[in-house]
């Protein structure tokens, strides 16, 4: 049962990572790309770390429980730090005057900037 949950969590994490990479490469401008990176990266990292923490609870001993709690601690830290870093990058981009994508262009040349 625990194995099943771990597999589901890890697979979901990898799936969200795939979406993150896709968005990071395919979205049209800086803001939408950061949007993909900030949300998808955080969620998938937290999911994978939770899966690993659960896996370390598999054979409960003090050592393994401690490892699991440390992993959960890292997950909490990433859940706080990663969106904040994305926010700071967005803010810096806005301050330095990057124009958001208007949605009007379709041609490859303009998109690949």
């Amino acid at each position: 049962m625990l194995d099943f949950i771990v597999i589901v969590l890890l697979s979901a994490g990898i799936l969200f990572f795939f979406g993150t990479i896709n968005g990071l490469l395919r979205f049209p401008d800086f803001y939408t790309r950061m949007h993909a990176a900030g949300k998808g990266d955080t969620l998938s990292t937290v999911l994978i770390l939770l899966g690993l923490a659960l896996y370390s609870f598999h054979h409960p001993s003090v050592q393994d429980l401690l490892t699991g709690y440390k992993i959960i601690f890292i997950a909490v830290l990433i859940a706080i730090a990663s969106p904040t870093a994305t926010h700071a990058l967005m803010d810096a981009g806005y301050e330095s005057g990057i124009k958001p994508w208007g949605g009007e262009t379709d041609s490859e040349e303009e998109v690949d900037k």
Binding site: L77, I80, A81, T84, H87, A88, D91, E95
Partner: peptide
């Protein structure tokens, strides 16, 4: 300097936790 420098609530809150 940006007018909001040092006043970003999100950054400050996160830094105060971390």
């Amino acid at each position: 300097r940006p007018a909001r420098e040092g006043k970003d609530l999100i950054l400050i809150s996160a830094a105060r936790i971390i």
